[in-house]
């Protein structure tokens, strides 16, 4: 089991009002799974994903990633988890506009202290893998949405993480590009990576082997 979520709760404070985003979520994900989390907006699926990806901290409950309890990790250790164990793909791509594709992909390796030569070599391989060998030296804004998202996937793979997380990875691209992206994620899954994707599009969710649904911060029964 690569991820275990126990009694997870998250409460957002909006001024004086407390808004519960997650209520007692329990979830187990095995290594090599391809999981889709579905649900309407505001159901808490992104919050769950952010906590699993160590971007956000829970209000209550525990999350184990690859055996480590994230609640007991320091900020630096959490950064290392984000850097080495989890690759995050955002809906908005979130590439750094001043850097070209190659540099964007090598950035996580830069933070991991990989030498420049090795970094660029691996970044090149990863870009080739997502079909962007010809566009390595383009800046994000010179690429289409689908291409940007593929750069983002290559970046998520930089430090060879076991888990790749996508928060609506196809939400900002057209259907065709979305299919390409889901195809890549499927390939990664076949190579052994654990893939977790949040979506509200059933067609996208159909790529996954397991689908769970959320509503009002709770997990509904699995299909």
């Amino acid at each position: 089991m690569i991820i275990r979520v126990e009694y997870l709760s998250k409460v957002y404070r909006m001024g004086k009002v407390e808004v519960p985003a997650l209520r007692d979520v329990n979830l187990e994900i095995e290594e090599g799974e391809f999981l889709a989390i579905m649900g309407p907006s505001g159901s808490g699926k992104s919050t769950l994903l952010n906590i699993i990806g160590c971007l956000d901290k829970p209000t209550g409950g525990r999350v184990f990633i690859d055996g480590a309890n994230t609640a007991s990790l320091s900020e630096n250790e959490l950064a290392e988890v984000r850097r080495d164990k989890v690759g995050f793909v955002f809906q908005q791509f979130n590439l750094i506009h001043s850097l070209n594709a190659l540099e964007n992909v090598s950035l996580p390796m830069f933070f991991a202290g990989v030498s420049r030569g090795e970094r660029l070599k691996r970044a090149e391989e990863l870009l080739a893998k997502v079909g962007l060998r010809e566009r390595m030296h383009h800046k994000p804004l010179e690429l289409s949405g689908g291409q940007q998202q593929r750069v983002a996937i290559a970046r998520a793979l930089a430090n060879n993480p076991k888990i790749v997380i996508g928060d609506e990875p196809t939400g900002n691209v057209d259907t065709e590009a979305g299919n390409v992206i889901m195809g890549i994620l499927g390939d990664l899954n076949r190579e052994g990576k654990t893939i977790i994707v949040v979506t509200h599009d059933p067609v996208i969710a159909a790529h996954a082997k397991r689908v769970i649904r959320m509503r009002d911060g709770r997990l509904l029964d699995e299909e």
């Binding site: 630096n76 984000r82 850097r83 995050f88 955002f90 979130n94 750094i96 950035l107 430090n159």
Partner: peptide, 9 residues
């Protein structure tokens, strides 16, 4: 973004 992809403080 940098912190999300693993930059430490």
């Amino acid at each position: 973004v940098m912190k999300a992809i693993g930059a430490k403080n």
